[in-house]
Design a protein around this nucleic acid. Sequence first.
DNA 1: ACGTCAATACGTAAATATACGTATTTTATG
DNA 2: CATAAAATACGTATATTTACGTATTGACGT
Lengths: 210, 210
Amino acid sequence: MIDIILVDDHDLFRMGTTMALGNAKGINVVAQAASGKEFFEALQSLPNEPTMALLDIILPDLSGVEIARRLRAEHPDMLILMLSAETAESVILELTEIGVDGFVSKNSPTEEIIEAINTIVEGGTYFAKDIARLIRDVCNASELRVELSEREQDIIRLCCDGMHARDIADKLCISIRTVDTHKTNIFRKLGIDSSMSLMRFALRRGIIHL
Amino acid sequence: MIDIILVDDHDLFRMGTTMALGNAKGINVVAQAASGKEFFEALQSLPNEPTMALLDIILPDLSGVEIARRLRAEHPDMLILMLSAETAESVILELTEIGVDGFVSKNSPTEEIIEAINTIVEGGTYFAKDIARLIRDVCNASELRVELSEREQDIIRLCCDGMHARDIADKLCISIRTVDTHKTNIFRKLGIDSSMSLMRFALRRGIIHL
DNA sequence: ACGTCAATACGTAAATATACGTATTTTATG
DNA sequence: CATAAAATACGTATATTTACGTATTGACGT
C-alpha cells in the first residue's frame, strides 16, 4: 500500500485528488493539508511516515519548494511528487537542485498522476512532458547559466521597482557610476540591451515578482 | 433542482467540484468540460439549458471571459459564476462589464461556493471577499480610469518588448519624435516616470503578457 | 600567501531619453 | 458640418544611459 500525504490550498482540488487517488488500487491518501504548517503538523501526528508527499507549490505560508527542501533534509526516505501549475524557471531550477522525484502538472489526467506515483515508488522519476520540456529549456537557456552576484540582483530589484540609477545610488549609498557599472555588467552578462528585457528576465528568473 | 455546467481544464479540480456540488442538495452537475470548445458542444447536446455555468478563466482555447461574453449574448438567461484563481485587473474589469453574477476564488471552501450558487439562483450576486476587494481597488485605482489610445497601447507593447524608441519608429514608420511624444503622454497620463513602472502597469492592465 | 572575483569608484564621449513647446493631418463624434 | 481628440511631426535643452577605459579594496578558496 502506498501511503500519500497531500498538500494543496484549493479545497476542491484537494477533494478531487483525494477522491481520484483513493479510488486507485494500492494508493491510500492518509493525510491532507491546506498549508505548510498543517502539513508538518499532520506529518508528526501520523503513526507511520507516508510513502510519498504530493506537494502543490503556491501555498499560503511555506512554498511547496520549501516543504520539499525540508522533507529532503528531515525525511530523506519520503518520496516527493510535485503537483502544480507553477512553471517559473527559478522554481523549476530549484526543484531539480533539491532533487524531487517527479513533477506533474495540475491539468494532467488522473491516470498520468497515478502512473507518476507508481513509477516513483518503483524507484524511478516522473516528469510530465511539458515540465520535462521546461527543464530541458531551462538547462539550455544561456541566460540561466549566467551567474549574477547578490549585488547585481539588488540592482536589478531596485531597477525593476522603477527607481532611477540616481535613486538607487542614494539608497545603497554608492556612486551612481557604480550603479551604472553594475547595470552594464548585467546587460553584458545577459546579452540584452534594454531595461524591459531585464525586467522580463528578472520575472522569469524569480528575482522580482509582480 | 439547480442544473450546473462546469468548465475547468484541471481534471482533478473538476472532479472535486463535481463531487462536492453533487453531494449538496438541490444542485446537479449536468455536464462538464475541459475547454471552451467542449463547453459549447456539451451545452448544445443538453436537452435543457442548465441553470448556471461555473467557469474557470484560464482554459486551453477560449478564455472563461470569452465564454461568459458569448453566454450573455446567446443564452442571456443562464446564470454565470466565475470560479478562478485569476486576479489580473483587466480580467476583473472585463467581467464586471460583461456582468457575471458572481466570482469565487478557487481556494474558497466548498460551503462558500454552494452559498454563492444559492445566492445567485435567488436573484442575487456573489463575489468572494478578496474578489470584492479587488473590484473596489480596481474601481478606485486612478490608473485604471486613464484612457489610452490604441496607438499609445501599441507604443507600450513595443516598448515592453524591449524595443528602443528608434526601433519602434522604424517598425511603425513614424518619426522617433512621435514615439517620444507618445511615451511622454503615456507617462503623464499614468503619473509615472520610469519604464519599469510602465511595464508593471501594462502587465496589470493586461496590455502585455509575459 | 597568492590569485580571483565581486564590489566599489571615477572619467569621457556618444547615444538616448525626457521635458518643454508648437503644429498639421486624420479620425470620431455630436 | 463642426469640434474634439488622436496621431503625426519637429526643435531645443537637459538629463540619463551606455560603452568604452582604469583602479582599489575586501572576501574567498587553494
